[in-house]
Each structure stands twice: as C-alpha cells, then as structure tokens.
Design a protein around this nucleic acid. Structure first.
Length: 450
RNA sequence: GCGAUCGUAGCUCAGUUGGUUAGAGCGCCGGUUUGUGGUACCGGAGGUCGCGGGUUCGAACCCCGUCGAUCGCCCCA
C-alpha cells in the first residue's frame, strides 16, 4: 500500500456545516444579484500572466511574489487568476462587450495566491464578484454598493459598516501621492522599517500601518480632500448622497486606500465593527468585502478608456461569519421496518411522491431495526414515517406517522403519534413544514408551506 | 519571505523525571434490556505515537532536519 498523498498546502476540503454555510453564501449572492439584474459570466481560471501583471501593476506584491504562475508546453507564462477583475476586463475587450455597456456582471469561483495560509486566508480561496463596466456615473457605484449591502444583510450578518473613501481622479491621486511622499520623507528616519520601504514602493499604504511609530505621522498627513479636483469632489458627493437615499449606512475613511494600482475615485470596504461578533470570528483578517472604481484598468490592457466599478468578497470569510446561522433543512424520515418487498415498494412510492412535491426525504432501510431508528432520530427529522408489516391477515401495510420531537429526551412525552393505515385516506403531518398531506387514491399530494 | 505554538485511534485529547504488551471519551460494529426504540449495560474492531536521522541499555517523551497544521507579521480580500 502506498501512502495517501497530502492535499496541497493552503487548499481545503470543505464538508459538513462549513460546506452548508459556503453554499448559503453563494445561493444568497446568486439570488440577490438577480434582483439587481447583474448578468452571470463564467471566466477562465487561468490567463496569460501579462493580463494580471499589466492590470494589477508590476510593482505590487500580488504580481511580484504572490501569483501562481507556470509555463505551458509552448513556453508561454500562464497564471491562475489571483482576482476576477483583470480577467473580466480582458474578456470585455476581447469579446467586444462594449456593445452591451453599461454592463452589469457577476461571477464567483476559485482564485489563487501563493501566500502563507492563516485564518480565513488560503492559497485557493473563493470569492463572489460583481462589476459594472462602461458606466461613468456615480449611480453605478451606488447601485453596486446597495447590492453588496443587501447581500450582507440577507446573510444575516450584523455589525458591519461600509467604510468609504475617494482616491480622486488620476491627477488628484498623483498630486496627493506626491504630497504624501514629501510629508513622510521629511520624517523618514522615525518611521518603521516597513514604512520606509513603503515610502518608495507604495506610500499610500503607510496610512493604514498599525505600527505606533507611523501612527503619529499619519494623523497630520495630507488629506486627499485638499487635492481633489472639482469633478472628483462632485463625483464623491453624488455617491454619498446616493447611498443616503438608498438607505446604505456608511462612514468616511480618509486613510482607506486600496493596494492595486488601477483604482480611482471610490474605494470601499465593508468592515466588522470593533468588538462585534463578526470581528471576533475573523481574527486579524478584517475586511469582508472590498472594491472600488477602476477607470484606468482598461487602458493598461490596451483598450479604450472605460470607466468601471466593482467589488469582491471572500466566500470563506463570509461563511465563517454566517456560521451556524445557515438555515437548517427540514427533513422527513422514512423508516422501513419491514423486510418484505411489497411493503418496501409501497414505502418508496410515498418517498417518490414526497420528493416530487418538493419535500426532502431520507430513507432508512439497512442495518438492524434498532439502528434504523437510531440513525433516523439522530438526523433530527421534522417528521417520521414508519412502514411495518400488517399485524393481521388482510390488514394493509401499516404506516405510523409521528412528529418527532426537536429536542433530546422529549421523544416519548412530546411526541404525537398518529397511526394510520393505507385504508384511511387522511393523515396530518407537521403543518409548520408542509401543511396537510392528503392521500388520494394511490397518490400522495402535498400542500406547500403557508 | 519571517516569527510563535503544535502533530498520539475516524474525532477531541490524556500519557507522570525517558522504563514491560500506549489509554479515555465520543464515533463505528455486534449483543442484552427498555412496550415505538435518541436511554442504560456488555462485548468488539481500530494506533509502525506526522516522516527521516541522532543521543541512549531503552524514545510518544530529549536533539537536529523535514512535511503539515494553527495563529500572527509583511501584503491583501
């Protein structure tokens, strides 16, 4: 026997409650994006490396050391996608989706980054993603954010706030960046080692440094507001006004910047409030959804200037917060106590009728009779049907219907047994699940939940 | 890339200063009892102690390496 191979570092096999929470996030996303009429797109999992290196920026850490890249047999460098946006921008340009502009699209799936795994962060991770392409108006930002807000709300996540900032247009951003470099260069020797590095590479990042040595100088650093052009300011005002009108709560975060080069104007993150339940579940990983406007991206890929705005959110992180709030599926248990084929066939007829009427059913027919009940009860069904042999000659196969108690120990006292036989034409099941179940002739028809 | 902690049964963990055949609970399988049965009791299967070296008469335990996990830093979502 050879050894079982290990899974790749930073990958995960998701099962059980985690998998249910994961699916709940995706299902909620799919349902809500349809309400906003975002169109589903499916994207390749890998692209030519240049798609990401040009779009994201050569100097960023993502490109310089966090990409999963490899050469194909023709010697071309390919990369497993570290994000959705660059690939969607490439598709927009190469498929002529300009004709659909403004185009609202949504997708979800696996992404890859070669990083050290830690809480809520994996080498293969999964995101939901929404983009509006070819829309320059601030109303696009508002709609996109309203959808994000609704998704988080419908996932039942509390205590999360939208942190909002503007990076201005290209000129504003450059002017501000210059002023920041000047400001921090004057005190360079007193900054943390990391921030001295950042000064050259990514000065905006100094703003959200956690190091106390840096915090002192961050407070009086130049603010973007002083460098905003009139247009940029008007744009931001329109976004915030729109959010207010849409009932989306937000807070200004002047030092919120995004790591990637292509962002302009609006930048935002949904962050759990200090001390909230969600914050506690996430460890040092705090942002649960982030994005912004990337008006410069299309040009970096050789396309015409195209305004666009989008966001992405990690499914694992959302699932972690949702946790056991995932609605549990109510199930009917059918226990076949009899060993006779005829009775099994009758039971399976009922099972089929229930499933075709949208009722989830689990069947127990193997192992000792005791085991069948043990297993059925452990699955905590909302109701149980028992098929057993007739007691007397000529009597029809006997069905017991009972409402199983939901809590341990209440089975015997709390349970309401309603024995019925096939000769009777009506029996009740737990109304909270399916309403009345009525047998007519050989068919079981069920009324849906009210 | 850096730091800290940790790898013993399917799962959660014990395992005393290094000392015979490595334990428990849960789970799993079989059985007895309980009126339709989630309980209780009896029995059973299941571990080359992550892997590879080293020290020692002797290593789950000490040392080195390696792989992996967890948490944090950098970065980012």
């Amino acid at each position: 026997m050879s050894k079982t191979p290990q899974a790749i570092r930073g990958t995960q096999d998701i099962f059980g409650p985690d998998a249910e929470a994961f699916a709940f996030v995706v299902e909620t996303f799919e349902r809500v994006r349809k309400l906003y009429r975002f169109r589903r797109v499916e994207m390749p999992v890998f692209e030519k490396t240049e798609v990401f290196s040009r779009a994201i920026g050569e100097t960023t850490d993502v490109v310089s050391k966090e990409m999963y890249s490899f050469d194909d047999r023709g010697g071309e460098s390919l990369t497993l996608r570290p994000e959705f946006t660059a690939g969607i921008a490439r598709a927009y340009l190469s498929n002529g989706w300009q004709q659909h502009a403004p185009l609202k699209v949504a997708t979800h799936g696996p992404l890859f980054r070669y990083e050290r795994p830690q809480k809520g962060r994996y080498r293969q991770f999964h995101q939901i993603d929404a983009e509006i392409l070819g829309a320059a108006e601030p109303q696009a930002d508002v709609e996109l954010l309203a959808m994000a807000d609704q998704i988080i709300r419908e996932l039942g996540i509390e205590g999360v706030t939208l942190h909002l900032n503007t990076l201005g247009d290209g000129d504003s951003r450059e002017a501000w960046r210059g002023a920041l470099v000047e400001h921090f260069r004057a005190v360079k020797d007193e900054l943390s080692e990391d921030s001295q590095e950042r000064l050259e590479k990514n000065p905006l990042r100094i703003l959200d440094s956690k190091d106390p040595r840096d915090r002192r100088f961050v407070a009086d650093a130049p603010k973007i507001d002083a460098y905003l052009s009139d247009d940029a300011r008007a744009f931001f005002d329109a976004v915030t006004a729109g959010l207010d009108a849409a009932g989306v709560k937000w807070t200004r975060a002047e030092s919120l910047v995004r790591g990637l080069d292509y962002y302009r104007h609006t930048a935002f993150e949904f962050i759990p409030d200090e001390g909230s339940e969600a914050a506690g579940k996430l460890g040092s990983q705090s942002t649960i959804l982030g994005g912004g406007r990337y008006d410069g991206l299309m040009e970096s890929l050789g396309g015409a200037p195209t305004p666009a705005v989008g966001w992405a959110a990690g499914i694992e992180r959302l699932a972690m917060i949702v946790g056991d709030k995932t609605p549990r599926q109510q199930t009917a248990a059918v226990v076949i106590e009899s060993a006779e084929d005829q009775i099994t066939n009758i039971a399976m007829m009922y099972v089929r009728a229930m499933r075709h009427n949208g009722v989830p059913v689990l069947v127990y027919r193997t192992g000792s009779v005791k085991k069948r009940f043990d297993k059925a009860l452990k699955d905590d069904p909302a109701i149980m049907f028992v098929f057993k042999n007739p007691r007397t000659e000529g009597e029809a196969a006997r069905i017991d219907v009972r409402v199983a108690a939901h809590k341990t120990g209440e089975l015997n006292k709390g349970l309401e047994a309603r024995p019925a036989t096939l000769s009777q034409n009506l029996f009740l099941v737990d109304r909270s699940i399916w309403g009345n179940a009525i047998r007519k002739g050989s068919e079981l028809s069920l009324f849906s939940k009210q």
